[in-house]
Design a protein around this nucleic acid. Structure first.
Lengths: 124, 124
DNA sequence: CTTGCCTCTGACGCACACGTCAGGGGTTAG
DNA sequence: CTAACCCCTGACGTGTGCGTCAGAGGCAAG
């Protein structure tokens, strides 16, 4: 299938697929004689996996770092993500993201409290 | 005082002061005959107020919208911020920010939970 | 008068995940 | 064959709060 259909099947756009490919999240697909990208159902599954992980707060850079292990998740999508993205051992992008999320949540929570204090009558 | 000293006194940089001025957070200061900006201690206090509010999560755009009421906070900085930025009545930038913060915290908290589930063995 | 720091304006850079446009060519149905 | 839609690459736009550079002029000290 060509890029438009593949993108639709994965719930995204052609532009996103080219972007993922450029950033190394997807392997360069086969090209037709005229240079058009040809995707397989497996490629589509990988795109879905990538989008799933992005929606979990991982960044494109995170995924690029573990791109070589992403296929494991494609064939094993409901199982433990940690297999391909160990928390501490080999780069730990997922663990790092979790920590970053915790830090960000803590920061915003503190901000919320300070702003709320200001609004309700900041004494002292 | 000139911009460098004013910026230092307010704990920031000349670039930031020009930026605030351009965005309407600060009134254009007096200029010397040669065109250099001259700041008063009151101006410095206003800069501090602006930075204080920015650090609370308000955006430059938020502050630009209530710029005409910021001086009230400068002279009354320890009191209720709500006076100049009502929660619902006249634009309610602070209230809107509070809601936005709540929404963002909720979003990140959900993400954190989903990512954690993925890492600890996401069944079903 | 010169040195050296300060100031001026205008414009680009950054991080993030793409959207959108421009200018060209492929592909398929009628 | 032609219309109509798809695809290609490359490059700029989006939102935030400034940092940084470029080129030109001001200001106080020796």
């Amino acid at each position: 299938m060509r890029i438009g259909d593949a993108a639709a099947a994965a719930g995204t756009t052609p532009r996103a697929l080219r972007f993922y490919e450029q950033r190394g999240l997807l392997p360069p697909p086969i090209r037709t004689a005229s240079g058009q990208r040809e995707y397989t159902p497996h490629d589509v599954a990988r795109v879905r996996t990538v989008r799933d992980l992005l929606s979990l707060g991982l960044t494109v850079e995170d995924l690029a770092r573990v791109a070589d292990r992403l296929d494991a998740l494609v064939d094993d999508s409901t199982r433990c993500t940690a297999t391909a993205m160990p928390a501490e051992g080999g780069g730990g992008v997922a663990g790092a993201r979790l920590a970053a999320l915790d830090a960000e949540i803590a920061r915003l929570t503190t901000l919320r409290a300070r702003l709320a204090a200001r609004l309700s009558g900041g004494q002292t």
